[in-house]
Simulated assay, not measured.
Amino acid sequence: MAKLISIVTPCFNESENIEELYRRIVGVMEKLPHYEYEHICIDNASTDDTVPKLRAIAAADPRVKVIINARNFGHIRSPYHALLQTKGDATVLLASDLQDPPEMIEEFIRKWEEGYKTVLAVKPESQESALMFFVRKAYYRLITRISEVPLVQNATGAGLFDRAVIDILRQLQDPYPYFRGLLCEIGFPIATVPFNQPRRTRGITKNNFYTLYDIAMLGITNHSKLPLRLMTMAGFGVSLLSLFTALVYLVAKLIFWDSFQVGVAPLLIGIFFFGAVQTFFIGLLGEYIGSIHTKVRNMPLVIERERINFQPASAAKPSYLSVPAAGEETGMA
């Protein structure tokens, strides 16, 4: 019996790319006739005509399955939810903006056939802006150094994951995961597929400062306690420095009682410096508390408004945080 490959492509306002993405995936899978496949598109409440195009594609091709979210649940939760809905022997995750070329699927499957349960796309080179690429590489180096487990540098999140990996992810029940970190924590050997990431040619990027900051802080708070320990050590070090400075000023004043003047400038500089350090540490501590708050709320990854081309809800394979909308399951073929 032919093995099944599940291909997941998260979508949000990708009307200009979704049809080409579908055609290129079909072209790749036609070169792999010994595999069957399903293509799951999860739409994060697009405001353009992405959903009508997905409906048309699904109506013509039953291998295409569509999940339409009730609202925009963010760039972390929506793709992860779609991964948990797959039923393939292996699952491929690709961005729908074509910056993860679908042609990499062949290389992913080749590595999987060699025995790797996790295959990740990495971009040692990119056609994005030089400044942004530098910032990303610097972050990857930082998170690799402070993480409690070795992370794969320059991984985009695209890749292939064996059914065993997906089953473990279902058991973890993480409502807001740092996906690349989770894959490394699982511990299976990871194969990498390097590629030169192309520049986006159509549409606009959905990443902004907030989304990039969110991912960056998620990676730190989920996979490292080092910042918390640095706070403790820094507080101890600053207290010793303050004590030493106070003793120096006391001795100087006792020796040069009439001529030694402290002045206002050192006091102001000290107040602003220690205030800035405290604010920074409180903010970092707040990130950890926010991460804990997100997890203890245990909210669903997404709420689905509609499914297309999936099997009936009563026969569907249950998975964590899957909330089918009653009466909205459709079976277009």
Rank of each mutant, 00 (worst) to 15 (best):
K53E: 03
G275I: 12
H81Y: 12
L285T: 07
A59Y: 09
I109C: 04
V251T: 11
R71Q: 14
K206I: 02
R23W: 08
I215K: 01
A246M: 11
F280V: 12
F260D: 10
T192E: 11
A315T: 09
E306A: 15
G115I: 02
V277S: 07
C41E: 02
Q278K: 10
Q173H: 08
F195A: 03
Y249F: 01
S242T: 15
P62T: 05
A164P: 01
R200I: 03
R202C: 04
G88Y: 00
V122M: 12
P62C: 06
L172W: 00
S259W: 14
F310M: 10
M104H: 12
I7H: 05
S96C: 11
S15E: 15
D48M: 02
Y288G: 02
L240A: 09
T86H: 13
G290C: 12
A191V: 04
P33W: 00
F310L: 12
G283A: 12
P102M: 08
R110N: 05
G275K: 14
L212K: 15
L151C: 02
H75P: 11
L301M: 06
G327Y: 08
V165I: 12
F108Y: 14
S242K: 13
P150H: 06
I7V: 05
L267R: 06
F236I: 05
A216H: 10
C11F: 14
G290Q: 15
E103H: 13
S314E: 15
I166M: 07
R145H: 12
S46M: 07
E38N: 06
W257L: 01
L172C: 05
S126N: 15
R199Q: 09
A316Y: 00
A45L: 02
E306W: 11
G270D: 06
G283W: 07
Y140N: 13
N298W: 00
Q85F: 04
